[in-house]
Amino acid sequence: MHMDCMIKAHELTRRFGSFVAVDGISLAVQKGEVLGFLGPNGAGKTTTMKILTGFLPATSGMAEICGLNVTDHPIAARQKLGYLPEGAPLYDDMTAGGFLQFIAQVRGLSGMAAKEAIQKAAQSVHLLPVLHQPIETLSKGYRRRVGLAQAILHDPDVLILDEPTDGLDPNQKHEVRRLIEQMAPNKAILISTHVLEEVEALCSRLIIIDRGRIVADGTPADLKARSRYHGAVTLEVSTDQAEAARSTLAEMEGLANLEQHESGGLTRFTLFPQAKADLLDPARMLLGGHGITIRQIALEAGRIDDAFRALTHSDAATDADRAEETIA
């Protein structure tokens, strides 16, 4: 086995009664990688994470953390692992500092080592001002950060974070992303998220799962290339020139399809190419030649949300989901 392969799952399956929540998922995350886990609610992301962390037993299949089987060596595997469960559950009656002290103790840190670890973790998620406050009095953003501090306290090799930025404001999201980026080179990180921009900003690779199965596995660029917008050209002209622009563009060579959308005096065209035709320069020249002013023009790399929608079912929600994932 490869030395740097820190999270490994082989053919994981989990059934709840007759419902198959996770259906043969295999994945591997290396050191230095941030793997994004995407999928509609109820697709099996959270269940997979619960199996990887050893909380739920798999019906069949195998999960390893740093080469340690999570069912055969649960304690040793958990020592290598930092986990933020869905919703960042915390002991509300404790202070943030007391809670981190508890985590440090459970992780076998005491005295100065515990103090330093708490200080460092609290500092990196900007928690220092509220360490003495009871957790129940903290805002959602701070609670999530306490959960993160708890997960990174012992500087684990492996991080599994279930929706780490859920419920945070844009600034807080940005900070959490930066934190994950900073830690990424030395760890194997698995995050689940619904925020697609996060995937682009953060993940070196992503896996989309739908109804318990992996439907896509690749870099964000790979996935964008699967979107129908990949290679498309979008351009905007003022609406009074829209008719002229339309008839000009329709003649264009290599054009497969043309979409039009009007808003605020501007009309946006999206040109979908045939095969791998490059439409950017031809479109620019053609319109310029007809005296039509282009306000804005761009070549699309593709859209993750588009690929996501094409690959997954929004009706994945069934009875078992309520136990499995909360509806966002």
């Binding site: 962390t53 304690i75 040793a76 958990r78 469960p85 002991y91 459970v106 708890q150």
Partner: peptide
């Protein structure tokens, strides 16, 4: 109820 059971049982605590 609070979900902390998941936290507790994924810490290195038997």
């Amino acid at each position: 109820k609070s979900g902390t059971i998941e936290l507790l049982l994924t810490l290195p605590v038997g």
